[in-house]
Design a binder for these strands. Structure first.
Lengths: 202, 202
DNA sequence: GTCTATAAGTTGATAGAC
DNA sequence: GTCTATCAACTTATAGAC
């Protein structure tokens, strides 16, 4: 018994220490960009030395993978509770706004999660699986609003990632493209939403 | 006279040597990615040594800037002659297809030109000016098809870059998103094109 | 677990001979 | 202009003392 609770303690302490390293890593990439993640700077931030980092992560890629998993988990939680009213445009626009808020509020996280922009890094299947489950949320949302064709889901992801990408690349901190979310949602649903078939009935 | 033509000769030879270095640089980034551009590998490819590279470019950033200018120039030329029929959907879809062809045919060029994804690099104002003149082409094309609101131009750039970005990130070499160009163009023009006002007249 | 010290490899850029 | 040789700084990762 004592031995087992000792093990729990140690596991918890180890998890805390790992989390502290990851927190330092996030702070570093938020300030200096994803490419500036070096183990030296990371260790300095975490108040330890470089070899100690290797006591908790077996490599730099393992750190990136843990960050990817954290980002994916945050994304799923952030997108999981969305309003469901009787107004499709409002619901879908709210989802896009939620998505864009997530992306623009932490650009390095966005780049790690969606742009695969770290040269030698590929997320592990487990981490990637978490990210994939978020696409299912988008599919459900569209289905609830009468969009069933997978091609239309592809169009929807292109539009939303396009808005976010332009916003981040060409107007960081502004709302030049995020301010177009409602218009774009209306355009999309006018072409592919439920109302398309119902127009003749009104 | 002799002195002046001597100068021309030397200038031409120098320009050729610079071009050869840039060609080697493009080959390198196309094979190994933008991040893998190192002066050692570059010199090896060009058949010279590292210090000789500095006889033609004052720094690595100068090389990247020359590459950016080349990319922007290619882009303007690639996009400058576009069909102008009486079918707005066909014309605009052709322009997007041209754009996506340009992007997917040379992904590192696309990343350098549009994603600003090289850590310490910012293009010089001259090089950036070339790139900006290409956006004017898109604006003219939309104006010719009855789209005048600058907000709608922003929507258009978001859609087109979104399609290309998804294509490159999630289906490289395929046509899952580029195959949607015609549909998306129809959707956009149905909402914002000339035909919108003319529908009641037909 | 945490450290000092260091390995073994990059990188961009330069000095100086020819 | 082109080379050899090298600098100074950085990277990830490890050996071994405590």
């Amino acid at each position: 018994m004592l031995k087992s609770s000792d093990g729990d303690w140690r596991a918890a302490r180890r998890a805390n220490a790992r989390a502290a390293v990851l927190d330092a890593a996030w702070g570093l990439v938020r300030e200096n960009g994803l490419a500036a993640l070096s183990l030296r700077e990371l260790a300095k931030r975490a108040g330890i030395t470089t070899p100690t980092v290797y006591a908790y992560f077996e490599s730099k890629n393992a750190i990136l993978d843990a960050m990817f998993a954290q980002a994916a988990q945050s994304f799923v939680e952030f997108m999981s509770s969305l309003p469901a009213s009787d107004d499709p445009v409002a619901d879908m626009a709210a989802a896009v706004r939620r998505f864009s808020d997530f992306c623009v509020s932490d650009v390095p996280r966005y780049q790690l999660l969606f742009q695969h922009s770290v040269p030698g890094f590929t997320p592990s299947p487990e981490s990637y699986g978490i990210a994939l489950s978020a696409l299912a949320l988008a599919r459900d949302l569209l289905a609830r609003n009468g969009v069933h064709d997978p091609r239309h889901l592809d169009i929807w992801t292109a539009i939303t990632t396009g808005l976010v990408g332009q916003q981040i690349s060409n107007d960081p901190g502004g709302d030049r493209w995020t301010g177009l979310i409602e218009d774009v949602t209306r355009m999309f649903l006018a072409q592919y939403g439920d109302a398309t078939q119902h127009k003749g009935e009104s």
